[in-house]
């Protein structure tokens, strides 16, 4: 088995209002050195060994990520079969 970890983040050109609100919260706590906060998603998939990078990329582009608003990257690591 392999573990795929997908990170989806809002594209640079898009304002992240959640991030802006969290930045305000941090400033409220006294962390005034925070320049920017951007919030994304981490998606974990447990897949069979036959799953290729290209298949993961297709999963991302067809469902897991909306390329109009999000960028993504993923990593694949081997895990011991259960």
């Amino acid at each position: 088995m392999k573990k795929v970890i997908v990170f989806a983040t809002l594209r640079e050109s898009i304002l992240d209002p959640q991030g802006v609100a969290v930045k305000g919260g941090l400033a409220q706590l006294g962390f005034t050195g925070v320049e920017e906060v951007r919030i994304g998603k981490r998606i974990e998939l447990l897949v069979t060994d036959e799953t290729t990078d290209m298949m993961v990329r297709e999963m991302c582009e067809r469902l897991l990520v909306n390329p109009v608003m999000e960028d993504y990257e993923f990593s694949i690591e081997e895990v011991a079969s259960v």
């Binding site: 898009i14 909306n66 109009v68 608003m69």
Partner: peptide, 17 residues
Amino acid sequence: LVEAGLLPGVLLRNKEL
């Protein structure tokens, strides 16, 4: 409709959340 690709663009979280 936008997710299905029948219309362009996307709907994001409201600016004021």
